[in-house]
Design a protein around this nucleic acid. Structure first.
Length: 899
RNA sequence: GGGGGAGUGGCGGAACUGGCAGACGCGCAUGACUUAGGAUCAUGUCUCUUUCGAGGUGAGGGUUCGAGUCCCUCCUUCCCCA
């Protein structure tokens, strides 16, 4: 894990990390040597924002946060190996981030290219897609435009094919599916059209079988040919459209429910398959960054093209006709199902079976023909684009590149790495990166002694987090990013946990990284050492993590807002100026139904009754009993009455409704783990987070149930330190207790193995219950009792490390509980002497009878038929059939009587 | 629109490859003991029925001796992509 040091540890960090810690502790007790490191993803924009807003240097802000978070992380009682801590903004770390960039650059995996980016003219920087909301910068609300800029990229697309394979890894299916969709492999053909002036336009299509239905072409507004081919008559309209398109975000442009727009360029192209002259349009639903930035439009068989054609009255020609039972042509819709080719010259009658690529006979035949004629060729494209890693920001790892006066590019020599971020920088309120005007940083010397200028862009922080697991192996190693000796011992990473929201970012980038590292020979020394020690390195450097599990998110709890009665003067039908606001009982508020202003009430007797849904300063949004929303503006001198708060009340004390949603400071629904730890103790908070939620799912926070964990720990404390049950043992009672202990070992171990932390804790609570009843019933000797308590503490150790250690010591055992061996499950001890045979009628239980544990089929059937329940159900008749289900995995055997 | 999750008591959630639905906990109810603490202890707690019993996992259908689990249709909701 590599958290961002945002300042305060969140309950979400506890939720993600403490179960993971429990599992690590369990594996350690199982005898494994476990590496459980921690570090910080310390570069990034929030630090720079803090610098601009509060005039604090990003480094100072970041390191102060890290220091604070280290303390908070320690309060978890996790077994983090702090000696291996890595901090990505430390030159000791980013030296190697730069080194990776350089190696990728030298191998042709990093390149400079043009891309459409979100550019904020006010901030003078490129923004990430996540920072752009509705075409505006989320921070300042100023418009963001699409701009073609030269940027640094990694050729992740080189690995598109390999990234689609997940050999030998145990990853959640949804994550794999998301990545596969993101990579978006499509099979088809590339076909070259020509304009009438003979300029080639290459297009990619997954449906070469519909080439004869192409009635027009569409170019992206940014396509380089646009200005060249546009006719004088159309030039003004085209230029206006291009400018307008630049102001829209990609999301807006491709939204399906949006009406398609476009402009005719005045130029025509020749369809190479039939020589037809077709018009060339531009439209913003075609993206320059996707494919070749040009499409052939087949309105009869593509919905977007269809809508476009209808709007601009362009011809629509059906070239695939469904046969009987294959679906039908629906008016107003494009047909994309199977059928036979028509209106397609010599291909008429060829079957298009709806499959993709060569598996479709029509596509197969057309591609073969295109290749023979030299018009086109078979091609595979990917939706995945190269990874844009440059950011016009200060607080990131510098890109170790210099630009010489002659226009050539040179990488910074290894011995000069890292290129250090200058610390004496000043931030302009514009947000422009200070690197762009920091003279000593900018000016440098090339290898031939000529003056040169440094690259001022820095790297995307996902770059830092793509390789951190290797730095954890040896965070201070200075001859490479990691020590091959350590790597040979520890790699590959066995288990990785994190949120599913990283599926197409971090998790994909890290996969690309290890594959690139492998291909650049960065693991060769590691592999050699592995072989020396008899380990086979084959396939160990293909994927970053063998097992991946996603945890869910703890959300803010839902809370009702205050129910109020506001009185005052109406200002229109939905707004009230309140002179008096009183918090009243919910029931009372719900009785009040209609609050529509009447002629009389507009003056001074207006009233709004309901729940406060939102409050911004003195403006309340109130939901009435009949579910209407009204605005109440509380006047400065208004009387506020809140019975639960003594003394004079203000409008700020009114509570508004909180939805179940992500925690954030601005919503005021943040749960502070420090406060919980102060109140309940770290062990209780750990155990509650593991017990109260399905870890993979998460859910809204609810502190009412934490009391169950408190009681459990109190009970364990009392049981462990209390008096043993009785001096003499009764074999039956002791056997019962032994079975309980064994069942607990099994449940807790299984829970930890399968990331089912809630059932593991439930198993511990069940053992507590069994210990309590054993104590109450008596018959357990002091030795057996002590042994049961001892096992209980061992099982608790991963979950509640502090209490387990304390009780372990008080019982007089040798330090430490955490270095003990995990108790072994003993099938024989867990076995029951007799079992309860379940008698069922048509799958529903009707009776239970005692049977020997090893009861066989014949005996079970006999016992079942003799049972009172069976006799009642059969009532003298014969069963149609008897089905015996043997007891396995601790389940009871069953006999189903079919009647 | 496409893809992927999820839907189980008043609540959080269990249920392994189809095999006693509701483990464990919260809450609630009744009783006990205390009436100084977030008490504690016992019993109960899916629904209907006095009982016997019957029904029950978003809705409807199907496969099966047997379905929360598998298949089909639909509804709701969350996430990802468009």
């Amino acid at each position: 894990m590599l958290p961002y040091p945002s300042g305060d540890l969140h309950i979400g960090h506890w939720f993600a990390m403490t179960p993971s810690d429990a599992r690590a502790r369990y594996m350690r007790m199982k005898g494994y040597n476990v590496l459980f490191p921690m570090g910080f993803d310390a570069f990034g924009l929030p630090a720079e924002n803090a610098a601009v807003q509060r005039n604090i240097h990003p480094a100072k802000w970041t390191y102060a946060n890290i220091e604070r978070m280290r303390g908070q992380l320690r309060s978890m009682g996790a077994m983090f190996d702090w000696q291996r801590e890595a901090v990505t903004c430390d030159p000791e770390y980013y030296r190697w981030t730069e080194w990776f960039f350089k190696k990728f650059y030298e191998a042709g995996l990093a390149y400079r290219g043009e891309a459409m980016v979100n550019w904020s003219p006010t901030l003078q920087t490129v923004l990430a897609n996540e920072q752009v909301i509705d075409g505006r910068d989320e921070r300042t609300g100023q418009p963001v435009i699409q701009k073609l800029m030269t940027q640094w990229f990694f050729r992740i697309t080189n690995y598109a094919e390999e990234l689609l394979r997940y050999e030998g890894v145990d990853w959640p299916e949804p994550v794999k599916t998301m990545q596969i969709n993101w990579i978006g492999r499509s099979e088809g053909a590339k076909v070259t059209f020509h304009t009438e002036q003979n300029d080639p336009i290459e297009i990619f299509t997954t449906r070469p079988d519909t080439l004869w239905g192409a009635t027009f072409m569409v170019l992206a507004p940014e396509h380089p040919l646009v200005s060249k081919i546009t006719s004088d008559a159309q030039r003004e309209a085209v230029e206006a459209y291009v400018e307008q398109a630049a102001r829209r975000t990609e999301l807006e442009r491709t939204a399906e429910d949006r009406e398609k727009t476009g402009v005719f360029t005045g130029a025509f192209a020749i369809n190479p398959v039939n020589g037809e002259r077709i018009p060339i349009w531009i439209a913003d639903y075609v993206m320059i960054s996707y494919g070749s930035g040009a499409i052939m439009a087949v309105p009869a068989h593509d919905q977007r093209d269809y809508e476009f054609a209808v709007k601009y009255d362009l011809p629509i020609r059906t070239v695939i006709e469904p046969r009987e039972g294959e679906g039908e042509l629906v008016p107003g819709q494009a047909y994309d199902g199977p059928g036979v080719m028509v209106n397609s010259d010599q291909f008429n009658g060829t079957i298009s079976n709806g499959q993709k690529g060569r598996k479709n006979p029509a596509i197969d035949a057309v591609i073969t023909w295109l290749e023979a004629k030299g018009i086109g060729r078979e091609a595979v494209t990917y939706r995945l684009r190269d990874w844009l890693i440059s950011r016009q920001r200060y607080w990131g790892a510098p890109i170790p590149i210099i630009y010489k006066q002659d226009g050539t590019i040179e990488a910074v020599p290894d011995e000069q790495l890292p290129v250090l971020l200058p610390e004496d920088v000043e931030f302009m309120p514009s947000g422009r990166s200070p690197l762009t005007y920091h003279e000593p940083f900018l000016h440098t010397t090339a290898s031939d002694g000529t003056p040169a200028r440094r690259e001022t862009d820095t790297m995307d922080t996902f770059m830092c987090s793509s390789w951190y697991q290797y730095r954890y192996l040896s965070p201070h190693y200075d001859r490479g990013p990691f020590d091959p000796e350590e790597a040979a011992y520890w790699l590959p990473v066995d288990v990785y946990t994190g949120g599913a929201e990283h599926a197409t970012l971090h998790l994909l980038y890290a996969r690309f990284f290890i594959k690139a590292m492998r291909d650049l020979g960065m693991f060769e020394e590691t592999a050699r050492i592995m072989r020396e020690h008899g380990r086979d390195p084959e396939g160990l450097f293909d994927e970053p993590w063998l097992v991946l599990r996603n945890q869910g998110q703890v959300l803010g709890a839902e809370r009702e807002g205050d129910y109020i009665r506001a009185t005052g003067r109406w200002d229109g039908p939905n707004k009230l100026f309140a002179t008096r606001v009183e918090v009243i009982a919910k029931e009372e508020a719900l009785e009040q139904s209609d609050t529509t202003p009447t002629a009389e009430s507009t003056l001074d007797s207006g009233m709004v009754v309901g729940e406060i849904m939102r409050r911004t300063e003195n403006i309340l949004t109130v939901r009435t009993a009949n579910n209407e929303l009204r605005t109440v503006e509380v006047l400065d001198d208004a009387e506020i009455i809140i019975p639960r708060i003594e003394g004079e009340n203000t409008v700020n004390q009114l509570r508004h409704h909180l939805e179940v949603q992500r925690m954030s400071k601005s919503k005021g629904n943040v749960v502070n783990p420090d406060e919980l730890v102060a109140e309940y103790g770290a062990d209780t908070v750990r155990a509650y987070l593991m017990f109260g939620f399905d870890w993979a799912k998460g859910g809204p926070w609810n502190s009412e149930q934490i009391i169950g964990v408190v009681r459990w720990l109190n009970d364990v404390w009392n049981l462990t330190l209390g008096d043993p049950p009785s001096p003499s043992g009764d074999p039956r009672a002791e056997r019962d207790l032994e079975r309980s202990v064994q069942a607990a070992i099994r449940r807790v171990s299984e829970g930890l193995e399968t990331f089912s932390f809630n059932t593991a804790v439930a198993g511990l609570m069940t053992l507590r219950n069994d210990l309590q009843s054993a104590l109450r019933r008596g018959g357990v000797s002091a030795d057996v009792w002590r042994d049961a308590l001892r096992t209980n503490l061992l099982l608790m150790a991963p979950f509640t490390p502090h209490i387990a250690e304390e009780l372990w010591e008080r019982m007089g055992f040798e330090y430490s509980v955490h270095t003990q061996e995990w108790p072994a499950y003993d099938e024989e001890k867990a076995a029951r002497d007799t079992v309860t045979l379940v008698v069922m009628r048509n799958g529903k239980p009707i009776d239970h009878v005692e049977a020997p544990a090893d009861v066989d089929e014949a005996e079970a059937k006999r016992l079942a038929l003799e049972s009172a329940g069976a006799r009642r159900v059969l009532n003298g008749g014969e069963p149609k059939r008897l089905v015996f289900v043997p007891g396995r995995n601790g389940q009871e055997p069953k006999v189903n009587i079919v009647v």
